[in-house]
Simulated assay, not measured.
Amino acid sequence: MSEKKNSNKFKYFYLILFLTLIFILTPFVLLRGHLFVISSNSMAPTLNYGDLVIMTNKNPENILADEDRGDIIIIRGPEYFYKSGFDPSFWNNLDNKTPIIHRAIDKKKINATWYFLSKGDNNIAPDGSYTYLNKSSNYYLIEVNFSDGIFIPESEIVGVVLFKIPFIGFLNIYFIPISFLIIILLIILFIFQIKHYKVRIIKELKTQEEPKKLVLK
């Protein structure tokens, strides 16, 4: 009877594990292309490292630009900033395919196209407003000029942040090690389950091999 209970416990455990994985992975599949992971603290404390943000589309004309209440925009990547003269080393040579998620603090319209000035909440100045006055192996001198911030065209904006889910982004950041641990755990459980059934089969065989006692009347 106890063996049957243990077997049922394992079945329930596997079912719960399976449903948990489905629950975690389903949003990533359904909302693919609309999910972004915060990989720096430039937007702290509004968005923190490891947060997962959901993107939505918004007409550029309706995007709110304000230093405190402006929409948080998702920029396609830093390529436009680099082409405009911004030094890549300020962003640790960020790859062109890595989105930038910063707040829209100003905007202007030029020839029917909207241009936006962005800034991280945790940064001291708008994006693109840093320049090197002197740079050497021993030291460097930086000038920050708010008026030199780079306005990006609406074509570089993928969307705006709709809402965030704290910490869930760590699943993506550490996807490989987490997946590895899950696989190892499943292998261990599988081996343990095999041993459990092996012991059960041996017990049943021994029971069958035991000689039956004859009862004489």
Rank of each mutant, 00 (worst) to 15 (best):
H102Q: 04
S7K: 07
F10W: 12
Y82G: 01
I178H: 09
K5M: 02
Y174R: 07
S147A: 06
F28C: 10
I184W: 07
E204G: 01
W91E: 07
Y80T: 02
L47D: 12
L30W: 09
G149R: 08
I110W: 07
W91K: 01
L19F: 14
D121I: 11
M43K: 02
N41K: 06
I173P: 12
K212S: 01
I110K: 12
I165Q: 02
V199E: 12
L133S: 11
L141N: 13
L186F: 13
D106E: 07
L181V: 13
R103L: 04
I188Y: 15
F180I: 15
I54H: 09
V29C: 10
V215F: 07
N145K: 14
Q208A: 04
D51A: 01
D51K: 06
F175K: 09
P45W: 03
F18G: 12
Y174I: 13
K4H: 01
S136G: 13
P126A: 01
I165L: 02
K97Y: 09
I73K: 03
T207Y: 06
L189R: 07
L25Q: 07
K198N: 08
L171Y: 11
F81N: 03
E67H: 10
G128R: 02
Y49A: 00
L185F: 14
L17K: 02
D106R: 03
K195W: 09
I176L: 11
L25F: 14
T26P: 00
F13Y: 13
S136V: 03
N41P: 04
L31Q: 07
I191H: 05
Y14S: 11
